[in-house]
């Protein structure tokens, strides 16, 4: 496993050799970015597509990165945007009723060979699947990625106050769901 590099080191490597430097960037960020996307889109195959789109956009736009923010919050922002765009497209393609959608999302979880949650974790994931997409992103970044509100604010372009309210609301909805099932 490679040692952690600073943003400056990664950007310097990219300036010297774009492909080589980009590979270092990917080694550093691919896992947290993959898990963030995976929690948003659920299946590994979809996550793989969105991850690839995300890093291709990072590759194409790395010169536009403003050094006044952290590299990882910038990449999270692209990943979140790509995930939301993907989810919106997927919703548009679906013709099922709301009940049908919930059923199909449950199917995705139960038939996913790369999911091994216990009973409580399955209920939790089902509750998360029912959140609005943007609120899902807020909940996942805080609850699973344990990101600070400050970094979430940079990643999502939303104020800390709005994020706290959204997270609080998501937690209450999930608790209600868990109590019912």
């Amino acid at each position: 496993m490679e040692a952690q590099l600073t943003d400056e080191q990664i950007l310097e490597l990219i300036q010297l050799n774009k492909d080589g430097g980009f590979r270092s960037l990917m080694y550093q960020f691919q896992e947290p970015i993959y898990w963030h996307i995976r929690r948003m889109v659920t299946s590994h195959e979809d996550a793989n597509d969105v991850v690839q789109n995300t890093f291709i956009k990072v590759y194409k736009n790395i010169e536009k990165f403003k050094k006044d923010s952290k590299l990882y919050t910038w990449i999270y922002r692209i990943a979140t945007n790509e995930s939301l765009t993907f989810l919106k497209k997927r919703k548009n393609k679906r013709t099922e009723a709301i009940d049908g959608e919930e059923y199909s999302l449950e199917n995705v979880l139960s038939s996913d060979p790369y999911f091994d949650g216990n009973a409580a974790e399955i209920v939790l994931q089902k509750a998360i699947l029912l959140l609005p997409d943007k609120q899902k992103a807020v909940f996942n970044l805080r609850y699973f990625d344990e990101m600070s509100y400050k970094d979430m604010s940079a990643s999502l372009g939303t104020s800390v106050g709005a994020l706290k309210a959204s997270y609080h609301h998501a937690v209450k909805k999930i608790e209600d769901y868990i109590n019912r099932y």
């Binding site: 691919q30 999911f115 209920v123 608790e175």
Partner: peptide
């Protein structure tokens, strides 16, 4: 305080990836 049951479940990652996925992604 607001979600004791959620708090009990914890935040373990229940998802998995194919073997060597991250080695090959880059």
């Amino acid at each position: 305080d607001i979600a004791p049951k959620l708090s009990e479940i914890g935040n373990r990652n229940p998802y998995r990836v194919p073997v060597s996925y991250f080695d090959e992604l880059a």
